[in-house]
Design a protein around this nucleic acid. Structure first.
Lengths: 351, 351
DNA sequence: TTGAAAGCGATACCAT
DNA sequence: ATGGTATCGCTTTCAA
């Protein structure tokens, strides 16, 4: 049986109010008596009762602000579904949500969106934002004001965020390489790879590429990279460059897509069908947007490696709430999603 | 803002006690006044506040009884870890655990273990048990007495259990087949497969096999099954039959292990190394016990397909607790784990 | 600096 | 059949 505040108060010969003040370092208690209370708490390894606390703090309802930079990007929709589902579970405890959905990658935009969330009274933040100095400075100022922040999907390591919840990009890339190595018969000719990424300025995408290259070495896959093309997470944009690449390099026999432009690349590939032997091309991609699911089912794509976007959002909200309930139970600094390998048979799993 | 019982009481001009009785169908309330209360609740779409309820029900602490038939089986240890972790999270809410760890598969043993749990005062049960009439009858009697039951890892569909939480065995088998199809070059000779299972009397194992066979057809893998050997989830036991099989059939080029005897089979395989070309043999197995992890890392096993045993236990306890809090929110009848594909790179993920 | 008391929402028990 | 009250554990506010 866990000891309660009331019991501590009795043992220390003080009131519950006093114990509460001590346990929350709220000051205004004589040092010696504070010390005594702390000791008793330690001795009995006091742990605050969650239900009691929740009920009591309901009087100051909490709004969690979420910044999402992916208007229209279905990947981020999954994260948001995680946010809202978690919020609904915590509704009884007085938790509500405010989602700021913006489109670009301009620091000023992000900063002003974050400001808006604060101005609207959010007491905690889930941010998917840019890891640039201007933004980080603003975030740190907010954290100083006792508003906890969690980085979701994209880390901002130069801030005092509580933790990062998201994908292990490097590992994803390396996993892709090992999968590929398994597809290959040792009699086969070397891989000639076309790499597509979102942007060479985005850390996660780069890590997926370096993990992939490292993995190819580790698993002794003889290969050459024909080209790396930036698709800026845009299916229309990537189409022409992809088509040009396929036309110019009919020797390509492997496609690695490190970011969201799977549909565009595959459309180009089908168009270039005449020259390439499409059946022989190994294709490995990331995430499971609807178009990707379809292509997996059709058998065009061999594998997709997923990062549980839903779970990222879900866990972020819960982690924030728990942290607010008890600042003492700080989560791990990095909460990394599993590296999920999907093929047609398990593509409809909800991770 | 959700309406509270207190508010309903005020609106109906009765006491909170009366409202509580109505909302829990506990009887003893005049029909017309009960109806009125129900109406008000509907109108305002009343939903009980979880925190309040939790605090109140603490006075009748809940013990969840768990039946585990796998003494010494590391797979079940993971399930148990899930149970205990979940229990620790719910400790504040008055939830404790009682684990009955038995070894055999005798119906009488299972029945008496279940009885023990009931006698020791468990108010809810997580059962991994046998789907046989004697046991099901006992379970149904218990459920009649208002003790909810969840089937974990092994379904007992002929009972009034709340739900089944566990693996989709058939899908796992089919996924194995598709993976295998990807490993094969179309120039390769047909697969000659050695199948190992736990017991031909265990439904889950059989489903893994039929899913596998069906999948091989679906994905047009030309193959023949050399033999199916029962290992009874026992590494020592399976060793000799496996060795004999490998000696007698040097043409085997694929091993499919549908149950827990991976280490035994692989030891035999290494011993038979002389005759078989071990590097050429495709091996695909289930679950990620420590020995299996090791063999995956060594590269002997190609893939292992996992079923999140930890999560099964964890989710079972949480689902039971939620159900007890509010019988109205019945979970899905089947809660199926994801089909997790693992290779060396992601073998240490905790699913 | 400290104590006392009200309240968060729901429940159970004792009266009536 | 119904009401009143104490209680679960914690927080907060008002007094002292």
């Amino acid at each position: 049986m866990a000891i309660t505040i009331k019991e501590i108060a009795e043992q220390a010969g003080v009131s519950r109010g006093t114990v509460d003040r001590v346990l929350h370092n709220r000051g205004g208690v004589k040092p010696d008596i504070a010390e005594k209370i702390r000791q008793i708490a330690q001795q009995h390894s006091f742990k605050m009762n969650k239900a009691g606390r929740i009920l009591a703090v309901k009087k100051q309802p909490l709004t969690i602000g979420c910044l999402m930079p992916g208007v229209g990007n279905l990947f981020f929709d999954a994260v948001i579904k995680g946010y809202t589902d978690a919020q609904q579970e915590l509704e009884d405890y007085g938790v509500s949500l405010k989602i700021q959905n913006i489109k670009g990658f301009e620091p000023e935009q992000h900063i002003s969106a974050i400001q808006t969330l604060i101005d609207e009274g959010c007491g905690a933040l889930c941010l998917s934002t840019l890891d640039v100095p201007e933004v980080c400075t603003v975030i740190n100022e907010i954290i100083e004001k006792n508003i906890p922040v969690i980085a979701v999907n994209t880390d901002i390591p130069n801030t005092k965020r509580i933790c990062y919840i998201g994908s292990n990009y490097y590992k994803g890339g390396k996993t892709a390489a090992q999968l590929l190595s398994k597809l290959l018969d040792n009699t086969e000719q070397p891989l000639r790879i076309a790499v597509f990424t979102g942007s060479l300025n985005i850390k996660g995408h780069n890590e997926r590429i370096s993990g992939f290259i490292d993995g190819l070495k580790t698993y002794q896959v003889s290969h050459s990279v024909i080209n790396i093309i930036e698709g800026f997470d845009n299916d229309e944009y990537v189409f022409l460059p992809a088509l040009a690449l396929f036309d110019a390099h009919p020797e390509i026999n492997c496609i690695y897509i490190a970011a969201s432009c799977v549909a565009g690349v595959c459309t180009a590939l089908r168009q270039a069908d005449m020259k390439l032997n499409i059946k022989q091309i190994r294709i490995i991609v990331f995430d499971d947007l609807p178009e990707t699911k379809q292509l997996i089912k059709e058998g065009l794509i061999d594998f997709t490696i997923c990062q549980s976007p839903y779970r990222q959002g879900y866990q972020a909200v819960h982690t924030l709430f728990n942290y607010i309930l008890d600042q003492n139970d700080r989560p791990e600094e990095q909460i990394l999603m599993n590296t999920i390998i999907k093929i047609a048979e398990n593509i409809d799993d909800e991770n």
